[in-house]
Every structure is written in structure tokens, then in C-alpha cells.
Amino acid sequence: MTTDLARELLTDGFDRIRDGVPEVVDGLSVEELLWRPDADANHVAWLLWHLTRQQDDQVAALVDDEPVWQSGGWSERFGLPYPPSAHGWGMSSADVGRFSVADPSLFAGYQEAVHERTVRYLAGLDAAAYGRVIDERWDPPVTVGVRIISVLDDAAKHLGQAEYVKGLIGRRT
């Protein structure tokens, strides 16, 4: 596979995430964004925030820079009751329940900012970069290419979960 083809495929995958976030938010009220199918389930708002935070944190680590969550002022705009370093991993059901959002357009704006950085990073990769080892704690060690696929996979799974919960919202009686 050529570097150009890899970049095109990965960019297409991340484009789908970027486009999917506002599609999920579209038509939902704040109350619906925060609705949970049961007391321990994640709601649409948390899922969209988490998928973008994980992408932001992991791409920031790859570019050796601060996440746009902090550098772009998104932490302040969202005003969540978590430390600025929070990204959702390991959060309890109670933590998810404390999530709130006043402006649903924040999700698309934050995802767009993270997407821009992601695509800019992908544009600068050459063939050798994909094989560079970045985490030797795993067997086999994690490479840049494996990390990028992991980020995309996690984002796609959480986007699908958010779409599913949105579907449940429409089916409530």
C-alpha cells in the first residue's frame, strides 16, 4: 500500500467521524442528549465528548503537543465538572451522570478542531512513520500506524453507540 493511499483511507475514516458527530446531535434537545437508557448507560452527549477527547489526546501525543481540548479553549467552553485532563477512560456511572452541556453545537465544533489536527498530522506522515514504535509496553510494541487505527476504531465504535442511543430516544414511549 502506498503512503498516499494509506493517508486517503485514514482521512476518509476520520472524515466519517467528523461528519457523524453533528448528524447524531441534529434534532436532539439538550434533555435528549443527556438521556440514558438506564442508570448505568452512557448518553449521547458523553459518548460524543469521549470519542472526540480520546482522538484529541492520542493525536496530541503523536504530534507531541497539548490536546486542543486545552489549547483551543474547549475545556472552558464545555465547562464540564471534570479536571481538564479528563477524557472519559475509567469514569464511573456517577461521573457520566454529572456531564452537562448547554450548547449542543459544541460537539461539532470540538470534533472539527480535532479533525483538522488529525488530518494535518496524517498529511505529514511518510511510509517509515507508520512503522515507528511509540509504546514498547505491549507485545508486539505499538507503532504509529497501529495507534492511528486504534483511535479510528474507538471513535467509530463510540459514534455507533451514540447513533444507537439516538435511535432509542426516538423509540421511547
Rank of each mutant, 00 (worst) to 15 (best):
R53P: 00
V114W: 01
W89T: 14
D103G: 12
D154S: 12
Q111L: 10
W35E: 01
V59I: 15
D103Y: 12
D135I: 07
E116R: 11
P104E: 07
F99N: 00
D126Y: 02
L80Y: 02
V142D: 05
R16M: 00
P67D: 04
P83S: 15
E31M: 05
L28W: 07
G27L: 01
S71D: 10
G27W: 02
E163V: 11
V68K: 00
G73N: 04
S92C: 11
S85F: 03
D64K: 08
R147G: 00
S75I: 06
A60N: 05
F14Q: 00
T11W: 05
W49G: 00
D40V: 11
A94N: 07
Q111T: 15
I169C: 14
I149Y: 09
K157A: 07
G145Q: 14
E23T: 08
V44D: 01
S100C: 13
T143R: 04
Q70D: 15
T3S: 13
L159C: 13
W35G: 06
S75M: 04
Q161K: 06
A39I: 07
S75W: 14
A86Q: 13
W35V: 05
I149K: 11
D38A: 12
S29C: 05
V151F: 05
Y121S: 01
G79T: 12
L48E: 08
S150G: 15
Q54K: 12
D4E: 14
F99I: 05
E8S: 06
W89R: 15
K157L: 07
R16D: 00
V30D: 06
